[in-house]
Design a protein around this nucleic acid. Structure first.
Length: 290
DNA sequence: CTGCAGGCCGGCG
DNA sequence: CGCCGGCCTGCA
């Protein structure tokens, strides 16, 4: 991988399999918006960028090299050996080989743990467009305004910024019955009842137990938050799509989620999170139904 | 108008 | 314990 600076843009060449659509639309993030030219604009921390991938080349528009090194390089997970992960998962598993073929360019973004906790609380029994809308509204109401290329964007509010919000405020953002969970999560994390720095150091089992002390956080929400925001790569979030595909591919019982979690943990181990992403993307692309 | 979405909670057997 | 109905809200 090497980086060229052209005008105000950065051109990253010989990237290890990064595909923008697959990465931004595999269900892990809610703040990337597809543009008319199929590039994606996203907000991370207090930075904004526009990204377009083309085979092994990645362009970040209106982005400085300094920001790339400080934010985007790690966030986009550009230094990981995805070829190694894929060959490990595909070994002796025709099903995974097939799934990987559909999402070869998926990267697991290294997001902020606090943001993923709130985002996936909002995701419960909800639809993706609505989840995105609620997160945008919350950012607009409680985050900081950023001007980028003459347009307004909003940071995702930090715990101290969100904790001042009332349940009613969150409901006005469209979060529905999850408003009380957002309120509780903000308080518990801001007051240190849940210490995210400590959570980051824990194993997946310990950290998920810790996060599930937050109302509105069950095993699925905890797994998502920890995989996407806590770099716990053995997490294997089981949602409806994963239930379907695990039934379809591995003959798992649709209504025995615990067994699916056990099976995935044993089978995929430290690569569970990556396996989940390939399976999820495949299931959605192929619209796998029971 | 019903049904339902990337789950979770609480009450019941 | 495991099971199951209900849940904000918006959209098909």
């Amino acid at each position: 991988m090497f980086i060229e600076s052209e005008d105000k843009n950065l051109v990253i060449k010989e990237v290890d399999s990064f595909n923008d659509k697959q990465t931004f639309e595999c269900g892990q993030c809610f703040r990337w918006q597809r543009q008319e030219d199929n590039s994606y604009i996203g907000v991370v921390n207090d930075r904004v960028t526009r990204i377009k991938s083309n085979n092994d080349t990645l362009v970040l528009y209106d982005t400085s090299l300094d920001d790339f090194e400080k934010v985007w390089r790690a966030y986009l997970d550009l230094d990981r050996d995805y070829s190694l992960i894929k060959s490990n998962l595909a070994e002796n598993d025709e099903v995974m080989k097939e799934a990987i073929g559909y999402g070869q360019g998926i990267h697991i973004l290294q997001q902020d743990l606090w943001e993923t906790i709130i985002s996936f609380i909002i995701s419960a029994n909800n639809r993706i467009p609505q989840i995105k809308k609620v997160i945008y509204n919350i950012s607009e109401m409680f985050g900081k305004k950023i001007i980028w290329n003459g347009k307004e964007y909003y940071t995702f509010p930090k715990p101290e910024e969100l904790v001042v919000g009332t349940e009613d405020d969150f409901a006005k953002c469209g979060s529905g019955f999850r408003a009380k969970y957002i309120k509780a999560a903000s308080q518990m994390i801001h007051e240190g009842v849940i210490n995210l720095n400590a959570v980051r150091e824990m194993s997946f089992d310990e950290s998920s137990q810790e996060l599930m002390k937050i109302p509105g956080v069950g095993i699925k929400v905890a797994s998502c938050a920890l995989l996407y925001g806590g770099q716990k790569y053995n997490a294997f979030p089981v949602d409806v799509w994963i239930k379907r595909i695990m039934h379809y591919f591995y003959n798992m019982d649709m209504n025995n989620v615990n067994k699916t979690y056990e099976f995935a943990y044993d089978k995929f181990g430290e690569f569970g999170g990556f396996a989940q992403q390939y399976l999820f993307y495949y299931a959605r692309e192929k619209q796998i139904r029971v």
